[in-house]
Amino acid sequence: MSERFQQGSLSARYGRPFVKLVLALTLFFLAFPVVMTFVSSFASDWFGVFPTGFVTTANWEDVIVGTGVGADVAVGSSLVYSTGLALGGVVINLIVGVPIAYAVARYDFWGRDWVNVFAILPLAPGIILGVAFLRTYPDLSTSGIALIIGYSLLKAPYMVMAVQSSFQSMDLQQIEESARSLGASWPRTFLTVIVPNAKTGIIAGSIISWTLAAAEFNFSYIVYSRGTPPLAIFLFNNITNASFLNAAAAVSVFFLLIALVTIALQIIGNRGAVRRI
């Protein structure tokens, strides 16, 4: 056997460890700031390389109680408000986005490609859409409805793409026709067979579009005028008006929220995958 076969090529010997190393470094690069932010939110000082003065809850108290140092309002009200707004956007996306994803994946109709393009391309940036909304519907900006509609429009592509990917992995035509031959009407087929079968995509789409909507800054900044600030504005105020450690606590609230929502939706998704009759 030649020496080349005995030793293997360079890529065969070092390729896999190299890819692993690159992945680990990338992951560390991305995760390190998040971890450091969370950890520093429990520190009293950060003047050197690493934060010091552990463990204090003062930063969290400032954010949670709303001492006036940062956003001048407690995180709870902003959090609840933004959760509701983002949820509203997700609900609209579910009602509109899932049928669009289904239609594009299942049927061949005139203009299908255009519908697909409009549904999955984030056409207008948040700042542009915000200005357009403010000029067109000046009275809506204080009610929160503009924020809900804007969030749903901005984040719809993520929902449509995630759900469409689920639909494309199924034999939609045969599943639909099986259900209908068994006596189910089209709406019943859609709601009791098609949608539950796309559960994974719907959950993924909901998590992504909710998370991005809850943290949408550009659109919120343009459209929001008064009252309880959306979370993105709250975080911005904390970051700009308070110490970094206060801002770290405010940002950590958001990290925790995302983690909790993701875990909750995963549990809901896994539960009842197969239910007994």
């Binding site: 034999d171 045969q174 599943i175 026709e177 099986s178 259900a179 209908r180 031959s181 068994l182 006596g183 189910a184 009407s185 067979v193 539950p196 079968n197 559960k199 995958a273 197969v274 239910r275 007994r276 009759i277």
Partner: peptide, 25 residues
Amino acid sequence: VPPENRNVGLVFQSYALFNNMSVLK
């Protein structure tokens, strides 16, 4: 007459089972 009112049993090549339900369901 629409398919849901014809009372036909259909078995496809891909079987098209409903994965969100148990076999019994």
